[in-house]
Design a protein around this nucleic acid. Structure first.
Lengths: 108, 108
DNA sequence: CTCCAAGTTTGACGAACATCGTACTTCTCC
DNA sequence: GGAGAAGTACGATGTTCGTCAAACTTGGAG
């Protein structure tokens, strides 16, 4: 994987709806996205996005989210992290992220 | 299961976001919902909602969608069918269904 | 009443998936 | 440069999930 920082704006395209849903349908990954979405900067170091998980398991989930086009690996300060691809996601499935995050916030 | 027709408006509540996503994350089930959503009446007999599947497999998927609160088993004419719980769904996760169906229509 | 079509239930099987431990890479900081 | 933290890659493992086949149920049509 890129020892170099983040690739330019030529990121992998956002996946099809079915694959997106699959990526979001896991509690761990949904929580990762939720934390990232509530983060004001829209990005955070890896370790801020999960708890009580083995590191390798976390990496596994990150990979799935990246391959779905939901996350974008970046360097955040000294360590690695991820950014939520809000605009790309909004363009692919307008309203999806807002709908999900709104409902999540509502259901506590 | 109810040999009698559809229960009154006291339907099971729509499930939490995570369970909803899980229910929709399968290609077969997503197609079922898509067909139902495009159906003008918002309801259709079971056999109109899938193809190339064993009947028992279809029943399995229907059960998951019903338990998630997405579908509502009804009698449609002589045979059984399902209705899409649009309003309940819209109340639980506003915009979700529209976002998904819009994207599906767009991606062919 | 009997037969048939349409769904459901149950059980079994194979594939996909989440999780972990360990070893390896690659940074940063001293 | 070396030590250590932070992630990643790789197997291995147990569980969940989608699928089917066969037996049962139910509602209508003849």
């Amino acid at each position: 994987m890129p020892s170099w920082e983040t690739p330019p704006d030529q990121l992998p395209p956002v996946a099809a709806v079915q694959k997106l849903l699959r990526a979001l349908a896991d509690p761990v990954r949904l929580e990762m996205v939720r934390r990232l979405a509530t983060h004001p900067a829209g990005e955070a170091p890896c370790s801020d996005l999960y708890e009580g998980l083995n590191k390798s398991t976390a990496t596994h989930h990150f990979k799935i989210l990246v391959e779905a086009g939901i996350l974008h690996p970046v360097m955040v300060g000294p360590s690695r992290g991820h950014r939520l691809r809000r605009t790309a996601l909004q363009q692919a499935v307008p309203g999806l992220l807002d709908a999900l995050m709104g409902a999540l916030a509502r259901e506590g």
